[in-house]
């Protein structure tokens, strides 16, 4: 059974069809990329999956169970985590605190535990902090653990966002343009990271404009244009799909084909 299924998902804002009757599914351990020109509805689809936008019609299923209509924090608990196109870290919290916020939902500490600093609270806080520090360490962020997120270099902020998402113990990770603004060295690191996450069993849904990265890491690619799915298939299939080339004409099709 597929981990995530989008079944005829439609999202309408007033008269605008942002996502129109889109269906696709993700298997466990798969990396699926969503590509398409700007305004194709990719981020809207993310927002629908994570519950930020209620969908107009259709169904989104996780493990075969519908998650449409659930509030975002419940969906997070079910195992979907995400990053944002424009980084949304907690700017005035330290890196380690940012990651610990990701651990919020599964921590057992109750209000009174925290208020009275019970033994349980303290030991849990310690272990969660250890976990957060180790996440930072593995992503190469340990020297920034105590800095405010806003003080970190841009590339590292992207990584920190991924660390925070990982702290929520996801089964499915949604990455929204993780390579945007990264230099080539950082992009290589990102690719390695994505590969490692895949190897560790995480399922990944990726939005990305960098076609080299997309073609390299994706198992399959879904192409959206004007809210509609116009193609789906392996990188090789998508690359040669005439509709895809058409959709990209004038926006980056030539670049897409060149870099592929």
């Amino acid at each position: 059974m597929a981990l995530l299924e989008l079944d005829s998902v439609t999202k309408r804002f007033g008269g605008l069809l942002a996502v129109s009757n889109v269906s696709f599914s993700l298997d466990r351990g798969e990396i699926l990329s969503m590509i398409g020109p700007n305004g194709a509805g990719k981020t809207t689809a993310f927002n629908c999956v994570t519950g930020l936008f209620p969908i107009t019609s259709g169904q989104i299923r996780l493990d075969g169970v519908s998650i449409s209509g659930l509030p975002p924090h419940r969906i997070t608990k079910l195992g979907i985590a995400r990053t944002f196109q424009n980084i949304r870290l907690f700017a005035f919290m330290t890196a380690v605190d940012n990651v610990m916020v990701g651990a919020h939902w599964w921590m057992k500490e109750r209000v009174w535990d925290g208020a009275f600093q019970t033994k349980r609270a303290r030991s849990e806080e310690r272990s969660v902090q250890q976990r957060a520090l180790s996440l930072l360490d593995q992503l190469g962020l340990s020297r920034y653990a105590g800095s405010y997120a806003r003080e970190m270099p841009y590339g590292l902020q992207r990584k920190l966002e991924i660390a925070r998402a990982l702290a929520t113990q996801p089964r499915l990770l949604l990455l929204d343009e993780p390579a945007a603004g990264l230099n080539s060295h950082e992009k290589v690191e990102l690719m390695q990271l994505i590969a490692r996450l895949r190897d560790e069993g995480l399922t990944i849904l990726l939005i990305e404009h960098d076609m080299r990265l997309v073609m390299e890491v994706s198992h399959r690619i879904v192409v959206l244009d004007h809210g509609e799915k116009i193609a789906e298939g392996s990188p090789a299939e998508v690359r040669t799909n005439p509709r895809v080339i058409e959709a990209y004409l004038g926006t980056g099709a030539s670049e897409a084909t060149r870099s592929a």
Binding site: F90, M93, H104, G114, Q117, A167
Partner: peptide, 29 residues
């Protein structure tokens, strides 16, 4: 100390800074 250290305190701070991001970290806003 409560706001700095505890789970709820962190939830409050993160919600104050970015409600959507907090929501997607699994925090019940």
């Amino acid at each position: 100390a409560f706001v700095q250290r505890t789970r709820l305190g962190k939830a409050m701070r993160s919600t104050a800074q970015d409600r959507t991001a907090a929501l997607l970290c699994g925090i019940d806003i």
